[in-house]
Design a protein around this nucleic acid. Structure first.
Lengths: 327, 327
DNA sequence: GGCCACTATGACAACGTTGTCCCCGAGCGG
DNA sequence: CCGCTCGGGGACAACGTTGTCATAGTGGCC
């Protein structure tokens, strides 16, 4: 800006005025300044501007588990969309389910003075955010609740969803329904397990621990679990899968198998309808989740300081065939 | 920092020294400062720091077409990974194939003084980046080349891939091979069309314009195109799909159809192997693309100022069944 | 002609840091 | 006792902006 001012033969304040479309600059002066800007390829330094103005940095921090996972990339897309409408940029990072990494990312974003934080919690301790929140940075947790702070949270109806999955399978005659879930220290995994259990009880088929295999799961552990479930005295005839990745592992394990157990997966995924049989899922909308959380964040930025809210988004069972097969 | 200094009864410079682990602070003083930092929940303002030091902002800008697309979210993940190893944060945005939006995002990132830019070009004009590049911001284009500037570029072998697809289909006896591609003003779509044409010529089956349907495509236009291709005097017996979305549209259109044309899709996608028949694809690695581009960017940041490079990543045909069927 | 209103512009401080330079006092050798 | 060194710490400027205030010139009106 200094260089521009020198080249145009004006003070830097005048350049600032031109750059900010402030009134009170003579057209001919403005033209000279614009020419200088063009010639030098000047671009205003936003950091300096925000520093001086003490105003928003125009950024939102997004900490999620893995952008590579279609579910989270859907969330990211929705967040970006809303942020864009509100003139913000999104800085994001993947925690890979590591609480330390989550914390590192969140605090890094705070150091960058993001206007707000959206966090898919990896851990259960979030008191490290208390100073930031007290300092006025709104934080919204999504997909999972915070561990030890009270804050806005947007969840999906994990329990309702798995209850519905089990109910659906039981209605089609299944009595031996298994559950393959993620590591039980992950909130959603645990909730879904609870829903599974409640569904079993409600359906009158009882809860049998032997039918449960919690993760973390990869292709190999899923194969092992399926073998175990099928070699029992009373084999499982149906499976509820705890998330999209586990569903895919199961599908891959069952490829080419003639007698397939019925299957209902938590999380919808692309092409589920084109498999044979098409996969019945508990669907919930990644972009709805992202949108709800971002809307909530912006409400806070707009001055809403009502008590923290907990929003639970509905899920719905999409019957496609795999949950209706008989073993 | 001012507050911390006051509370600890020292000057702000001493606080700065403590925060930066600089030597020359008495342990007992440091302790007092740390206590004050803790009590106030102080967090150093990175913008101010970077402004003062005139150093890197520790950020990388990433402009892509749509984070929601699994291909690009794979790219994003890879970029994030490398950036993390080099201590950078990623700011990203989706252009939705709109050149204006691409430009807006890129320039916004420049205003934020990103250390470097990774761009999946939406348009063909990138001279707007010349001042930035001249000012020292390295820019790497990925997936598609820049329109009118010379810059580092990482591409995949679009032509080789479609040549191989056509060759593969022809080797299985197909003579009427169609091509459904994206809008021809998109570089990759055009290149793939060229590869298709060359493949046809090489296979000795000739290039017939009637067998080509360029986009933009959605489910409806794909259905129409397929109807046209199949109601010809000599119907198409095989199809090459120009990208993952078109492949999915085709699969959805063909669902339940008994006599399916053979199909080879450009871009691999999850579950392609589990469909029936499994989908033969031209595979290339999103994360390899992201990694190559980011590595190149960091090489520039490390001072490499050799002439701009163009890297072309190989693709490979993954035969799975759908490209081998006979009509 | 004197005064006022108004336009166009500039000087300067400040945002939150950090780099440079300087100062004070203690310890030590001569 | 003097001078020197060295450890600890502070004052101040500067990064690139913008907000506040001041100022010079210009034209109009009584």
């Amino acid at each position: 800006m200094n260089d521009v001012a020198r080249l145009a033969g004006v003070s830097i304040k005048t350049v600032s005025r031109v750059v900010n479309d402030e009134p009170g600059v003579h057209p001919s002066t403005a033209e000279r300044v614009l020419a200088a800007i063009d010639q030098l390829g000047f671009r205003r330094n936003l950091s300096a501007r925000n520093l001086r103005r003490g105003s928003s940095t125009g950024t939102i921090g997004l900490v999620l588990e893995d952008v590579g996972n279609p579910f989270y990339s859907g969330v990211t897309r929705a967040v970006e969309e809303i942020a864009r409408l509100r003139g913000r940029q999104v800085i994001s990072g993947s925690s890979d389910e590591d609480p330390g990494r989550e914390r590192e990312l969140a605090l890094e974003f705070c150091s960058r003075r993001v206007d707000g934080l959206l966090i898919v919690p990896a851990g259960l301790q979030h008191s490290y955010l208390v100073p930031e929140m007290r300092a006025g940075t709104p934080v919204v947790f999504l997909d999972r609740p915070a561990g030890d702070v009270v804050a806005d949270t947007v969840l999906v109806d994990n329990i309702g969803g798995t209850v519905e999955a089990v109910t659906h399978l039981a209605a089609h005659g299944h009595r031996r329904i298994a559950f393959l879930g993620d590591a039980p220290d992950i909130f959603t995994a645990n909730e879904r397990l609870r829903g599974y259990r409640e569904g079993c009880v409600r359906a009158g088929i009882g809860y049998h621990e032997e039918l449960v295999a919690m993760g973390p799961h990869d292709q190999a552990t899923v194969v092992t679990a399926l073998q175990r479930l099928q070699s029992m005295r009373e084999p499982a005839t149906a499976i509820v899968a705890g998330n999209n990745r586990i569903t895919v592992h199961i599908l891959r394990s069952l490829a080419g198998v003639a007698e397939r157990p019925a299957l209902v997966g938590f999380d919808d995924f692309e092409l589920a309808d084109l498999l044979s049989p098409p996969v019945t899922v508990i669907a919930h909308d990644a972009s709805a989740l992202g949108k709800a959380a971002t809307d909530l964040l912006f409400a806070r930025l707009d001055g809403d300081n009502s008590p923290p809210r907990r929003v639970v988004l509905p899920v719905r069972l999409v019957p496609r065939g795999s949950g209706e097969v008989h073993a």
